[in-house]
Nucleic acid binder design. Structure first.
Length: 124
RNA sequence: ACUGCAGGCUAUCUUAUCGUUCCGGUUCGCCGGGAAGGAAAGUCCGGACACCGCAGCGCAGCGUAGCGGCUAACGGCCGUCCGCCGAAAGGCGAGGACCAGUGCAACAGAAAGAAUGUACAGGUAAUGCUGUAGUGAAAUCAGGUAAACUCUACGCGGUGCAACGCCAUGUAUACCGGCUUUUAAGGGUUGCGCGCCCGAUGCCGGAGGGUAGGCGGAUAGAAUCAGACAGCAAUGUCUGGUCCAGAUAAAUGAUAAGAACCCUCAGGGGGACAGAAUCCGGCUUAUUGCCUGCAUGUUAU
């Protein structure tokens, strides 16, 4: 099993991100909130994901980068576990809602929870 | 050694596993190589580059300010004079002009240039008319003040890479170009004036706005390292070497182990400030560890 996260699996379309927020469903597992939408993606992949850290809570770009990288890493390692069970295409947006800098273990735990809940709801 | 002053360097390293992005190769399995900073920050100055109704003239406005130099340019840097602060090393300075005009001036003083006058002496037809004293930094041919107006010299068009060019999709006439017609209300421009430009309708041609979709711009340069020469220096010239991020919602990472360093209550703990966004030159602010030189006093020898 390959643990990759190439460019085509990144959610980049502004239109899609906007529609995920307006039409999507959401799950929260502190300190991360997942907003997702079943939709058509511009690439032939199962999932496209984006990661966001609000500027309001983290003024320094270094901190925002760090949190995004942790979330991306956790997503990369967990994603193959659920990808094979999904038949349709989904757009995901992960938002960090915590106030302080997390460690990797906390992010991984939260990510795992969110991904399995997503898979459970969409298991055909 | 302590204290102070000035300048400079530095910003942990290695390995393993799993990843991201760019370049080159490829038997399309992969392989090799590059990948944040000294401030990438604040966006405070100065350029390069790009476009805009050529941006022209006058007034106004803004910026700079000893003198000389460096530079693509600067409000930066170097040298130097003067003033102030400091015991010194050294630091700081909106340091051009009040023999152009206008204004302002605490206390003292009759009076600080349009308003008058004390004492003594001299003088006159008469009068502060004259001298001295007195106040003050300055008192009737005055002087001070320009982080007061002002004057002088020099500089300044605007907007910023979400600039700008190309391609795709696609809705509909609000856009552009040319010609025609009318010379005209109105509009545009750097605040104002001049000037300049746009400006009815119809026809022809192109496509405009929006979707921040894709590609270019976009990373080899006022680059960097070494040496020589010129110069007190900033800096410049020449020769040789090097190639050193180019992402686009945004890569440069995650985890683990070890080494060195610092602190230690001997269990262990710690690693600052901070993340490229068109690119350069500065300034300012944040911050780790260290080195060198200098100054004066104290202590030790």
């Amino acid at each position: 099993m390959r643990y990759t996260f190439p460019r085509i699996e990144k959610l980049k379309s502004r239109k899609l991100i906007a529609s995920v927020f307006t039409e999507g469903s959401s799950h929260a597992k502190y300190p991360i909130r997942l907003v997702w939408l079943e939709t058509e993606l511009p690439e032939a992949v199962v999932l496209q994901a984006a990661f966001s850290v609000p500027k309001r809570h983290f003024k320094k770009a270094v901190d925002r980068n760090r949190i995004k990288r942790l979330m991306r890493e956790a997503y990369r390692l967990q994603k193959p576990q659920i990808e094979k069970d999904l038949k349709k295409q989904y757009a995901l947006v992960f938002i960090y809602t915590g106030k302080g800098l997390p460690d990797y273990a906390a992010v991984e735990k939260s990510m795992k929870n969110l991904l399995y809940r997503l898979a459970g709801e969409n298991d055909d």
